[in-house]
């Protein structure tokens, strides 16, 4: 059997979506960005909206996201993607608008913009990649860095007394009346990635309803910043990150998920301190 005998339409089991360009991604092997990019691109392809989308990229690891999507893109200043997305959706309501941000961009410097865009109930899709660290600048502490976790700006572990608590921004946003769909997903296993794709599809479909923000947090690893192999990083994320940032829906169709209400009721209890795998 020759190569040509195998390459036939009927043998096709997987093909890359045309919504991704041919550009080689700069992301580290093992990083979640590439998977989330592919999921968004597939959703855009499946919904047939490639000629009707504007994406907003952040400052951070995914600053160059615009090179990888074959859709129109605007690169925002650090933290301001929700303000950009708000303006574009209002000026061009005929388009599907999505912002794509990391945790330094969204939860730290852009905290004000994301809260107010959610509070205004902008009819947009927000994708939030939370890996608990600043990847691009070399592994510094983020608002989402776990207590006790080591980074280059908290080399002895994050001490909440000195450095503040690990921030659950998505839980805050879910409580704003302007958010319509709020969920936390992950892409570290094929099953998780499939669920995540369903959520992102929902978040884009919701723009047709004009009912407010659809917000998808994707809890991810940063094996480079965490100084681990991709396999170790995914294991560490499952054992540590997901305890503080549990996966699942918080708000669907504008209504709180019952499990989310139960969980919020425990927020006044002391945080369960989680220590880095490398802590002695």
């Amino acid at each position: 059997m020759t190569r040509e005998d195998i390459i036939k339409p009927e043998n096709l089991v997987y093909k890359r979506t045309p919504v991704l360009t041919d550009a080689t991604m700069h992301y580290c092997p093992g990083c979640g960005h590439g998977v989330v990019h592919r999921i968004i691109a597939e959703v855009i392809e499946e919904m047939g909206i490639q000629d009707n989308v504007i994406g907003i990229s952040p400052v951070g690891c995914s600053v160059l996201a615009y090179n990888y999507f074959d859709v129109d893109f605007v690169e925002a200043a650090h933290g301001r993607a929700p303000a950009c997305a708000s303006a574009i959706k209002r000026l061009r309501p005929e388009t599907f608008v999505f912002s794509y941000q990391g945790d330094g961009d969204l939860a730290s410097i852009g905290c004000g913009e994301v809260v107010h865009a959610c509070n205004r109930g902008e009819n947009i899709t927000m994708i939030f990649i939370n890996n608990g660290i600043y990847g691009m600048t070399g592994g510094q502490m983020a608002p989402t860095t776990l207590e006790g976790m080591e980074t280059v700006t908290c080399p002895y572990g994050r001490d909440p007394k000195l450095m503040g608590h690990t921030m659950r921004l998505t839980e805050m946003l879910a409580q704003l009346p302007g958010t319509y769909y709020v969920t936390r997903q992950a892409v570290y296993t094929p099953a998780a990635a499939r669920k995540c794709k369903k959520a992102i599809r929902q978040a884009f479909e919701n723009q047709k309803l004009n009912k407010g923000v659809s917000f998808v947090e994707v809890t991810s690893n940063c094996n480079s910043g965490w100084k681990m192999t991709p396999v170790q990083a995914n294991k560490w994320m499952e054992e540590n990150t997901l305890k503080y940032f549990p996966l699942g829906d918080m708000k669907v169709d504008g209504k709180f998920d019952p499990k989310f209400i139960e969980r919020v009721a425990t927020f006044d209890q002391p945080n369960e301190t989680i220590f880095s795998l490398r802590k002695k």
């Binding site: 200043a77 574009i88 000026l91």
Partner: peptide
């Protein structure tokens, strides 16, 4: 930044 993005969209 809203002005930046609106201008980026040709408005």
């Amino acid at each position: 930044n809203m002005v930046y993005a609106g201008a980026a969209a040709g408005k």
